[in-house]
């Protein structure tokens, strides 16, 4: 094995790392803000609010992300009206298709996590909020959501790692993220060990950083639950 190839190509790998982090940060942010209203709707007692969100969550969690990304990037080109509309400026770019697919996917998984946490809000907290005379909106804003989001932190940490690993699919649709960079190095030098082991180490380091960050977050936000 000749790891000097990797040293020569470090700029490419770091560029890939940049794109991976960028895709991850944007999709997680968009997904997070989408997931909160979705989770509230999915936890609602109203069938008309709940059912469409449940179907959305079921479809996005039940099919491979690879298919979702293929439908958006390759599939939508089937429709001529879309290709002729100005939306095509977005849907012809692999970059935006990846962000749309990742955001919707993580929104579905995150909404499911938050929904569970909302439904498990201790009765006492709800009663206390009602006793204070809070309306539905204030209950959500000041009691239910802060409590549910805190309890979701460990599960959400897993989702973030899952999304980090899912970003490799950007490399499948021609983008040069970390995985795309490894593919380029592999095909240029026919060096699968060097290229995939080194990006593997990049991902491993990122995974450990995320795990560590979430340990810190848990220590800060879940102190009151520790025994």
């Amino acid at each position: 094995m000749d790891f000097s190839i990797i040293i020569d190509n470090l700029p490419l790998l770091f560029k890939g790392l940049g794109l991976t982090l960028q895709l991850l940060a944007i999709s997680l942010t968009v997904g997070f803000f989408l997931s909160i209203p979705l989770a509230i709707m999915a936890a609602s007692k109203n069938t008309w609010l709940r059912t469409p969100v449940k179907i959305f969550i079921y479809i996005f969690r039940g099919t491979p992300l690879l298919i979702q990304i293929f439908i958006i990037y390759y599939g939508l080109a089937q429709f001529e009206w879309l290709r002729e509309s100005s939306l095509w400026l977005i849907f012809k770019e692999a970059y935006w298709c990846a962000i749309i697919a990742f955001s919707l996917n993580t929104a579905a998984y995150t909404a499911e996590i938050f929904r569970g946490a909302i439904l498990q809000t201790p009765k006492g907290e709800l009663e206390a909020a009602e006793a204070c005379g809070m309306n539905r909106w204030d209950q959500y804003r000041h009691v239910i959501l802060p409590s549910a989001l805190r309890r979701s932190i460990p599960m959400y940490g897993n989702e973030v790692i899952f999304m980090l690993h899912a970003t490799v699919l950007a490399g499948v649709i021609t983008l040069v993220d970390l995985f795309g960079a490894a593919k380029i190095i592999n095909s240029r030098y026919y060096a699968p060990f060097e290229s995939f082991i080194s990006v593997g180490l990049f991902y491993l380091a990122l995974t450990f950083t995320i795990v560590f960050a979430f340990k810190l977050l848990e220590g800060h936000f879940l102190k009151h639950l520790k025994r």
Binding site: H165, V168, G171, P192, F193, F196, G200, Y203
Partner: peptide, 20 residues
């Protein structure tokens, strides 16, 4: 290690690396 690395990276490693 396995749970820290994306599945596609491992698959490429085993597929292309195994060939070598």
């Amino acid at each position: 290690v396995i749970r820290g690395i994306p599945d596609l990276v491992l698959m490429m490693l085993i597929f292309f690396g195994g060939q070598i």
